[in-house]
Amino acid sequence: MEKEMTKNRITKFQLFFLLIQSQIGVALLSLPHAVQVSAKGDGWISTIIAGVAVQGMLIVYWQLLKRFPTLMYTEITKKVVGSFLGKFLNVFIYINFILVGGLATILFIKLINLWLLPLTPGWIISAMILTACIYLAISDLKIIARFFVLATSLILLLWFTSVLSWFTPKEFEYVLPIGSSGLKNILLGSNNSLLAMLGFEALLFFFPFMIDKDKKGVFKTVSMANLTITLFYTYFIFITLISFSTDQLTQMREPILNLLRGISFNMIDRVDLLFLSVWIVPMATSIITYLFAASKSLNLEKKHYPKAVVVNGCILFLITLIPSDDAIITLFNQYVSYLSYLVVFLIPTLLLMLSFLMKKHEMSESR
């Protein structure tokens, strides 16, 4: 594993785009609908709070990774709590990445079926998407990072397209008065934003591959990626909130696509469908990240890693065959959320605390 990391290094520049692409996906398109249920016009505040919470966890990650700079998440668990308990925790870590990847794929397929290919069977869309994702996830992280850098240009396309929507009517009264939803509802909305921003935990697998990982610039890069994502999400929630009333947002599954749908030109119509056709790539990058993390969490030798990716891709395909009515997806999403809080927030925090209390770090065994 150490030899692989030596040959397969990534730069801080590439890490920035790896984290951005890992966090942005299908959840962005429906986030304004999810947040407004509780936070109403204060949904943009909820996203800012979620970004602050992510930054807090990044500080925890950074402190933990500084103590174990060449170890991945599932190796740190065994280093801190021992082999037996570490393997037990790693089971939850692996299951989390598989289930989150499966949920992202299900939502991806549902979106494509609803907006682009209503007559195409979901399993065909799933097979095509996962085949491409498996092909990229098998590659070295350096190659994945280069692809993610190129794919970021498509995110800029979404921002540019949204600028055109400012020519449509806007009602700032929809977000006034600020704070009228109450602190409780704003915090409930931040929970939805936080779940949509998941993907930053991939840092626990990316960091060992870093060049110059000991420099403070790495943490600045990670923080800048989080700031970019937070501002990006806040911007789109805000522009959606001032474009549609609360009643309208309640009836829209993907408000951002509805926002783009209102844009038309003499030579171009249905900008939303053109955009969605391009947005397939950024939505797929998050699935690639979860395939990568799930396969790496098995701690296999490099020669066995491609087989693990293929097997995990097949597992995701089987998950997508589950009937995808709204009730089942909601229940699935709820349980995945609970597991994500355990894997993304609780376990790393406990590992950091235990590593300090037990004075464990990467070189502790040699002393």
Score class of each variant (00 low, 15 high):
Phe160Glu: 05
Ser181Ala: 11
Asn266Leu: 11
Thr161Leu: 15
Thr11Tyr: 10
Ile211Leu: 15
Lys307Cys: 08
Tyr335Glu: 10
Ser190Lys: 00
Leu164His: 02
Thr74Gln: 04
Leu342Glu: 01
Thr6Val: 14
Ala137Pro: 06
Ala284Glu: 04
Ile280Ser: 09
Tyr290Val: 08
Leu187Thr: 05
Ser295Met: 09
Ile347Ser: 06
Tyr338Pro: 11
Ala34Arg: 10
Leu65Phe: 08
Thr168Glu: 12
Lys303Asn: 13
Ile347Pro: 11
Ile129Lys: 01
Leu141Ile: 15
Met224Glu: 14
Val163Ser: 08
Thr131Tyr: 10
Ala39Gln: 05
Thr77Tyr: 00
Phe160Ala: 13
Leu157Cys: 08
Lys359Ile: 08
Ile49Ala: 10
Ser165Cys: 08
Ser83Asp: 15
Phe209Trp: 04
Phe172Arg: 02
Phe232Ile: 08
Leu249Ile: 01
Ala327Leu: 15
Leu58His: 08
Ile134Phe: 07
Ala53Met: 14
Val311Ile: 15
Phe167Thr: 15
Thr330Glu: 14
Phe160His: 01
Asn96Tyr: 12
Gln21Ile: 04
Leu117Ser: 09
Ile263Asp: 07
Phe356Glu: 13
Gln63Pro: 13
Leu141His: 09
Ile112Asn: 07
Ser38Arg: 06
Ser264His: 03
Leu141Ala: 14
Gln248Asn: 05
Phe356Asn: 14
Val163Asn: 02
Glu362Thr: 00
Ile109Cys: 06
Leu158Gly: 07
Gly41Ser: 04
Leu257Val: 02
Phe147Glu: 12
Val175Ser: 00
Met197Pro: 05
Pro121Lys: 00
Val80Trp: 05
Val218Trp: 00
Glu301Lys: 09
Ser139Glu: 13
Lys220Pro: 01
Gly43Lys: 02
Gln63Leu: 15
Lys170Thr: 05
Glu4Val: 11
Ile124Tyr: 03
Val163Phe: 11
Lys110His: 08
Phe108His: 09
Leu150His: 03
Ala145Thr: 01
Gln23Met: 09
Ile24Lys: 00
Ala284Ile: 03
Ile178Leu: 09
